[in-house]
Design a protein around this nucleic acid. Sequence first.
DNA 1: AAGGTCCTCAACCGCAACGGA
DNA 2: ATCCGTTGCGGTTGAGGACCT
Length: 334
Amino acid sequence: MGRPPCCDKIGVKKGPWTPEEDIILVSYIQEHGPGNWRAVPTNTGLRRCSKSCRLRWTNYLRPGIKRGNFTEQEEKMIIHLQALLGNRWAAIASYLPQRTDNDIKNYWNTHLKKKLKKEEEGQDGQNTLSQEGFSSNSSSSTSSSHNTSNKGQWERRLQTDINMAKQALCEALSIDKPELLSSPTQAQQQQQQSIYASSTENIARLLESWMIHKPISGGSSRDSTQNSCNDKKWIKSPDHEEFKSLLRFNSNSNSSTTTTTTTTTTNDNNSQVSASVEVFQDESKPRFVTAAAVAEEQVPLSLLEKWLFEEGISQEHVNMLDMSLDVENAADLF
DNA sequence: AAGGTCCTCAACCGCAACGGA
DNA sequence: ATCCGTTGCGGTTGAGGACCT
């Protein structure tokens, strides 16, 4: 019945990875680059299936992954993105390049879901419009998949996009726009304004420190919370163009952190952010296309970034309209 | 201190999409 | 157009640590 699990073969190891296995995998990828996962177990001698190798790399070993606690900004971003995109963790993760989809998914399921539920209960029936919108989105993947379980995945995603765009439009048009979340304080708004600046700074900082601390040989102790970059001997030349561009951004972003309050400057900065993040994603998620990227392939992040910035400022309904309308197919279907 | 329960998150599974033949 | 191998994604599981009694 059905396809046999890919890891059912005799001799294929399952369960947690050992540091030795990590080192072998990282060394191999360092030499050959990620990809051709089928060949990885054969060529490395790892008794793991190709899928397991790929997962281990993408979720844990690849450089640039930030582990540990989620910041408040990240949290807010995830909440916003989840409301906008539903449970499309990969799409959400594409806006948080340091975080893996798995991490985000776990964080959502273990923390944010409960937190939001609490907040919802706390609101106790107030803001019903907002709640409806949010709760429907929180379970959008579930509910939409229930409703359209026979449709193809792309159809469901399109449906989700349409719903998201509709909701965004409704909210944008609502003068007394209820906050999706509890009303942000001024400080929170300021924090939101600098989401991208700070996150990209962190990326660059992380990479810098990673390069500075890059280990000469494979680490021996396994610390599951931070071994991805620092304990491994994954070594990529600091001269690599990708890192150069990220570090370039870092120097640029110093000014951007203080100039993210106007639309014009944010757009400029966004293009920088987009470029950097795109470069980053090229390595980590080469095939992925975000929902925003589908809507506007040339500048994958700017619209959502714009929305997030402006959401933080709690004004500029027109831009919400822009965003909704730029979700091409969805707008056509209204 | 010991046992039970809860929580977290790395890893697995299965399905869908992609891309080449 | 179809097949088939590979990759990506989202849901789920379970080991192990944290916390509680």
